[in-house]
Design a protein around this nucleic acid. Sequence first.
DNA 1: GATGAATGAGCATTCATTCAT
DNA 2: CATGAATGAATGCTCATTCAT
Lengths: 194, 194, 194, 194
Amino acid sequence: MGKVEENKQQKEQSLLSTAFRLFTTKGIVKTSVSDIAEQAGVAKGTFYLYFRDKYDIQNKLIAHKAEQMFRHALEKSDYHSQVGTADKVIAILDDILDQMQRDPGLLRFINKNLSWGIFSRAVGNSSIDYLSAFREILELGDMDETGLQMTLYTVIELVSATCHSVILEQDPVDLKQYKPYLYRAVRAIVMSIA
Amino acid sequence: MGKVEENKQQKEQSLLSTAFRLFTTKGIVKTSVSDIAEQAGVAKGTFYLYFRDKYDIQNKLIAHKAEQMFRHALEKSDYHSQVGTADKVIAILDDILDQMQRDPGLLRFINKNLSWGIFSRAVGNSSIDYLSAFREILELGDMDETGLQMTLYTVIELVSATCHSVILEQDPVDLKQYKPYLYRAVRAIVMSIA
Amino acid sequence: MGKVEENKQQKEQSLLSTAFRLFTTKGIVKTSVSDIAEQAGVAKGTFYLYFRDKYDIQNKLIAHKAEQMFRHALEKSDYHSQVGTADKVIAILDDILDQMQRDPGLLRFINKNLSWGIFSRAVGNSSIDYLSAFREILELGDMDETGLQMTLYTVIELVSATCHSVILEQDPVDLKQYKPYLYRAVRAIVMSIA
Amino acid sequence: MGKVEENKQQKEQSLLSTAFRLFTTKGIVKTSVSDIAEQAGVAKGTFYLYFRDKYDIQNKLIAHKAEQMFRHALEKSDYHSQVGTADKVIAILDDILDQMQRDPGLLRFINKNLSWGIFSRAVGNSSIDYLSAFREILELGDMDETGLQMTLYTVIELVSATCHSVILEQDPVDLKQYKPYLYRAVRAIVMSIA
DNA sequence: GATGAATGAGCATTCATTCAT
DNA sequence: CATGAATGAATGCTCATTCAT
């Protein structure tokens, strides 16, 4: 990689990480392109050499962070040591909820912006084959692709939607109180497709 | 009611309905207070006599429309003629999905803005006792208040979250294809709490 | 005085005292006619039955409060017990500075708004004959009217101008530090006309 | 200096001079940022590239114009040819009064806005050492810094306050009539500190 | 490629004043 | 006399985007 190329990579990285920091702390609306460029140490015009506009960088960030979150759950959670299907799912879920609770800014950022389209593209582009992984976990060796995807979609949206309010606003209850209900619902869904 | 009072009612109604129309067609962000006032046929300043700001009218609309949607589902769906608990729930759900599909603007408006706080306040202020109605439908005569609320919260968020993308963007599939999966999930959740 | 007349007096008084309170606490610019009317317990339109506009009530208040301040100084200070001319003046001055320091809002209100025109009209309308009083104090029995007025004007403006910054902002020094310099200057001026 | 830099200088100058013209003719309150930008021939947003807000440009102008006025008085008045201390002071004063009378807008602008803080900062930043100059004029070689400053403060505020009404409104008398009284007062103050 | 000066449309909000009741 | 609903002009400020250098 040439020096120039390296420099470009560095600029893009700087813009991405700065944007993420600002998005998750100040919120997307309150973060201006000026802010991002300035704090990333580049000129305002330079931003537009790397990203089409604010929504371009936003979508790229969402996909990246979502993928990161799933990667963490698959690599760091102890779902392998669980026996039952539902228990494995819960283990993964637990890791994800942990991540979200540890970084509410991340949750806020991902949640209301993560469309299935963006997500599935991110997951598809990843070096990890998530679908196979989930298929294996759910022990649905012979289930059709669509059925697997629908189940994933349902569970992911359920968790994402309910936890947004629960974690960020402790409304209607806090996460600790809500977990039993959420886990029961997830278990029920997972069992129902067996 | 005096002439003046009548006139005020009319103005407020005009502002509310205009705001709703603009919010659901142009989106909330793209709708300015100027737009609303102008199209409602009143001066810009008049808007501020009736609502504190854009978010005031927005929240009032969300609560109002959400309540309306549930009222419709309870009054117009044929859930009474169903026998099983799950079938009753599905009947109500069907009505709500119908409403949403008929008016995607409404869905778009309510979905990403309806916090549980706003919703429960709206439902609480209503002349209908929704909690009792749902308790009866779910045949959970002796379940504690919290358990009932958590179940409602879970189901509502699940439906709301998944249908947003499904109805508005036919992604990952369209509503017709997704319904079986959604209904199975809802059935599973409802059965799990029995 | 009829009941109606009484009521009107009461309304005007209420408006005046409310305006003064708001002017001295929030500042003139930040105080709106709405504020005054609302807090005075009358309708907005009623304000305009008593005062032409915000500047009308402002000028009336300034004149009134300035007269009050001088009345206090002449009636409550112990200048009578002083022997020398300059000492008498200083005694009066001391009382005025005390009043200002006790009520910075009053100082802020009067100072930058008190034009000589408003003041002299106020003083002229008063039941007290201030010019004679000052003539006596300064022991200038035979000085021409103009000379007396010019001296008063000079001293009043000097005190008013210097003390504004000194009392309200302790800049360039605080009142305690500045007093010796101010008194020396006033003494010098008073002596110079003898 | 590059072309760009030159252009920026020009824009800032244009904004400053336009603002001064509008402030002194229409008054500060009645002058909007839009007015300034428009008449300076730049876009509204450009204004904010050079000044934080209206008060920023206002303070900068006040300091600049005040410094300019004193510079003129020291450089253009013939105080050098005067022998007595008081006569020197009077000569300088005469120059300043002349400037004010020639440009009532300037007087109006500076007078009620010039706080000692702004002034002393302006004077401190100047290339001229005003304090030394005044010390020399007043022949107070060994007076402490504070005493010198207090005397300056007193005289400046006295002149500024009295002349505002006298020059702008010929009230209570016009400048010609007031000068003898003012000069006597200033003489008295100057002599008293010797 | 990189810069950053310049743009100007756009928006929320306030407020003095009027006038029909 | 009193009310208070209605007006709409006015203003400060932001920000995505462009383009000459």
